Computed example of a mutant assay.
Amino acid sequence: MKTWFYLPLLLLGFILPGCTKTTNEVVIPNQTILFEINPADWGFDNNTGVYFYSIPVSELNNVNQLDGVIVSMARYDANAPTVVPQAFELLPQVYNNQSYFVIHDDQAVEVDIKGVNGAASQKPATKVRVKIVLIPSAQ
């Protein structure tokens, strides 16, 4: 009786290790675009009180609604404007009483700066580096 009880367990011990799961992963590389904006390059909209800069990105022609577009920005130190920025902050972001946000279409990414809580809009005093990452999605 005990022999019959152990026989299925013994068979499972031989069958289960023989099963292997095979997965095929498709890696779709992203694209990273770096762009620097000088303080004098910002435009100002008198009607809305918003500073803006439109970055032409021809790679956005192939982006669809399932794909991801991530925009981050790094500021240069005011005392050393030629040094490479050390950290990127994801946009949208509120920094120093200014709201930084982005919009994009199939031709450009626009970075806008607006004061929060009634504060006046102020453009950055130093150049900024914008990093745009396009992440295609395979669904």
Score class of each variant (00 low, 15 high):
Thr48Pro: 06
Asp45Ile: 14
Thr48Trp: 06
Ala78Ser: 11
Pro56Gln: 13
Val130Leu: 05
Phe101Ile: 01
Pro85Leu: 03
Ala74Asn: 07
Ile135Gln: 07
Ile113Trp: 00
Asn30Val: 06
Gly115Val: 09
Thr48Cys: 10
Lys123Trp: 04
Lys127Cys: 01
Val109Pro: 01
Phe52Met: 05
Thr23Ser: 12
Pro81Trp: 00
Asn79Ala: 13
Ala125Asp: 06
Val128Phe: 01
Val109Leu: 05
Tyr51Thr: 05
Ile103Trp: 04
Gln98Asp: 05
Phe52Ala: 13
Thr32Tyr: 00
Phe44His: 08
Pro81Phe: 01
Tyr76Met: 01
Val111Arg: 01
Ile132Gly: 08
Ala80Gly: 09
Pro92Ile: 02
Ser54Tyr: 00
Lys114Asn: 01
Ser58Gln: 11
Gln122Thr: 10
Gln31Arg: 12
Ser121Met: 02
Leu90Asp: 00
Ser121Trp: 00
Thr126Arg: 02
Leu66Arg: 13
Pro136His: 02
Val109Tyr: 00
Asn46Pro: 15
Pro56Val: 12
Phe101Thr: 05
Arg129Asn: 04
Phe44Asn: 07
Ser137Glu: 04
Glu36Gly: 03
Leu134Val: 15
Asn24Thr: 15
Asn46Val: 10
Ile113Glu: 00
Ala78Asn: 05
Val26Arg: 04
Asn24Glu: 15
Asp45Glu: 12
Gly68Phe: 10
Leu34Tyr: 13
Phe35Trp: 15
Ala138Cys: 08
Gly68Glu: 06
Lys127Ser: 09
Asn24His: 13
Asp106Val: 12
Asn46Glu: 15
Ala78Tyr: 13
Asn30Glu: 15
Val111Met: 00
Asn47Leu: 15
Asp77Cys: 03
Ala108Pro: 03
Pro29Phe: 03
Lys123Met: 01
Arg75Phe: 07
Ala40Gly: 07
Phe101Lys: 11
Asn38Pro: 02
Ile103Lys: 08
Ile70Arg: 00
Asn96Pro: 02
Gly49Arg: 13
Asp41Ala: 11
Asn97His: 03
Ser58Arg: 13
Asn79Gly: 13
Ala40Trp: 07
Ala119Gln: 10
Tyr100Asn: 00
Asn30Pro: 09
Gln98Ile: 01
Pro39Phe: 14
Ile55Ala: 14
Glu110Phe: 06
Tyr100Ala: 03
Ile55Trp: 02
Ala108Ile: 02
Leu90Tyr: 04
Pro136Gln: 08
Ala87Arg: 04
Pro85His: 00
Gln107Trp: 04
Pro56Arg: 09
Asp105Ile: 06
Phe52Asp: 12
Asn62Gln: 12
Lys123Phe: 02
Lys114Leu: 06
Ile135Met: 12
Val109Asn: 01
Asp77Met: 07
Tyr51Arg: 02
Lys114Met: 12
Gln107Gly: 14
Glu36Ala: 06
Pro85Lys: 01
Tyr76Phe: 15
Ser121Phe: 02
Ser121Asn: 09
Ala78Gly: 06
Thr82Phe: 07
Pro136Lys: 12
Val111Thr: 09
Gly118Cys: 00
Glu110Val: 12
Lys123Ile: 08
Ile70Gln: 05
Val94Ala: 14
His104Arg: 00
Val69Ser: 13
Val50Asp: 02
Gly43Trp: 11
Asp41Gln: 11
Ile135Thr: 11
Leu90Lys: 05
Trp42Lys: 02
Ser137Gln: 10
Val27Ala: 15
Asn64His: 12
Lys123Ser: 07
Gln98Phe: 04
Thr82Lys: 14
Gly49Tyr: 11
Leu60Ala: 11
Ala125Lys: 13
Val109Gly: 03
Ile55Val: 12
Gln93Asn: 08
Ala119Tyr: 05
Asn96His: 04
Val94Trp: 03
